Amino acid sequence: MTGADDARAREPHPRLRLDDSFASPIRFSLMASLTEGIEIDFGTLADIIQAGDSALSKAISHLQAAGYIAARKGYVGSRPRTWVRSTGAGQKAFAAHLEALRAIVETGGQTL
């Protein structure tokens, strides 16, 4: 074994650092849209990520249960509205997920 082979044998593959909460394309897109400090209303978010109301609602519920986003409800005039923002934990988890994806791409380019 070479030194590079030894290092690969000891280091876990970066895919093991992926967060399953972002496995869904809608949840991934939702988190990508909610950059630090941004709060977006449900309708605008649905338009941005081109998702139906039901699918987006399920994604919000999943990420909210994980503690990655926060939702607040209110009214604009007499119409109910929901606004969504990422939490600090969500931002950290999403950044770690993106780093794991980058590491997977880098690992994939290495020769055996």
Rank of each mutant, 00 (worst) to 15 (best):
A59I: 06
P80L: 03
F42Q: 01
A95Q: 09
R81D: 07
D47F: 08
R85F: 11
S86F: 10
D41G: 09
R85S: 15
A71T: 11
I49E: 00
H97V: 05
S57M: 03
A89G: 10
G74D: 15
D53R: 04
G67M: 00
E99N: 13
A70C: 11
Q64Y: 15
T82Y: 03
I69D: 00
Q91F: 01
S78R: 10
A51M: 02
A100H: 03
G88L: 07
A65F: 00
T82M: 11
R79T: 13
G77P: 08
A100G: 04
W83V: 09
Q50V: 10
Q91C: 00
T44W: 05
R79W: 14
A66H: 10
S61A: 14
R102V: 07
I48W: 13
A93P: 14
A103W: 09
R72D: 14
T82W: 03
A51Q: 03
L63K: 02
A96L: 11
G67T: 01
T44R: 08
A95P: 10
A51L: 03
Y68T: 04
A95V: 08
T35G: 08
Y75R: 12
I40Q: 12
L34F: 15
A96H: 08
R81C: 09
G90R: 01
L45M: 04
I38V: 15
A89F: 12
A103H: 10
I38H: 14
P80T: 04
A46P: 04
L63A: 09
T44C: 04
A103D: 13
T82R: 06
